[in-house]
């Protein structure tokens, strides 16, 4: 596989060391931290598998073999979750990565998925009302 294309249904944002991605069609919510966020940024900029591995090696305390294994698993999870698909296209080497101390402590890139974040709105007993929020203004007494 060469590059990844982020699905058009995915709305995503990176802040510092975290990416949040939301599938606009299903509402599924994903969080990606640190090494995973770097891999995501590489993918967004059109970088390929090898570029992700190189970014991890240069920025984290991890050897190449380990980085390759972990990136492979991470990319597989992106494909499985329909966040991305294999692609070929323009390549940029500007990944817009935030500054990080060289060889930072490493944790494998991980995709955390939460399928039903919006169900939490139902779990909260008070949010059984419309989007105007609770409570509504007091109605005028009938009599």
């Amino acid at each position: 596989m060469t590059q990844l294309s982020i699905s058009s249904a995915i709305n995503h944002e990176r802040l510092d060391d975290e990416v949040i991605a939301i599938n606009l069609e299903t509402g599924a919510y994903y969080a990606i931290q640190a090494a995973g966020a770097d891999c995501w940024s590489v993918a967004v900029a059109g970088g390929d598998f090898d570029a992700m591995v190189q970014v991890l090696i240069s920025r984290f305390e991890v050897d190449e073999a380990q980085a390759r294994t972990d990136v492979e698993a991470f990319v597989a999870s992106l494909l499985r979750s329909n966040l991305a698909s294999p692609a070929q296209g323009m390549h940029s080497s500007d990944y817009a990565l935030p500054p990080r101390q060289p060889r930072a402590p490493y944790a494998p890139p991980l995709l955390e998925g939460f399928e039903d974040l919006e169900d939490l709105l139902l779990i909260d007993p008070i949010h059984e009302v419309d989007e105007a929020g609770w409570p509504l203004p007091a109605p005028t007494p009938e009599r």
Binding site: N11, H12, L15, E18, I20, L24, Y29, E118, L121, E131
Partner: peptide, 18 residues
């Protein structure tokens, strides 16, 4: 928090998180 969840807005959710 409620509207960004309903709007599926990752930027607003990150802002809330921070």
């Amino acid at each position: 928090l409620i509207k960004p969840i309903q709007a599926r807005d990752p930027r607003a959710l990150l802002a809330v998180d921070r």
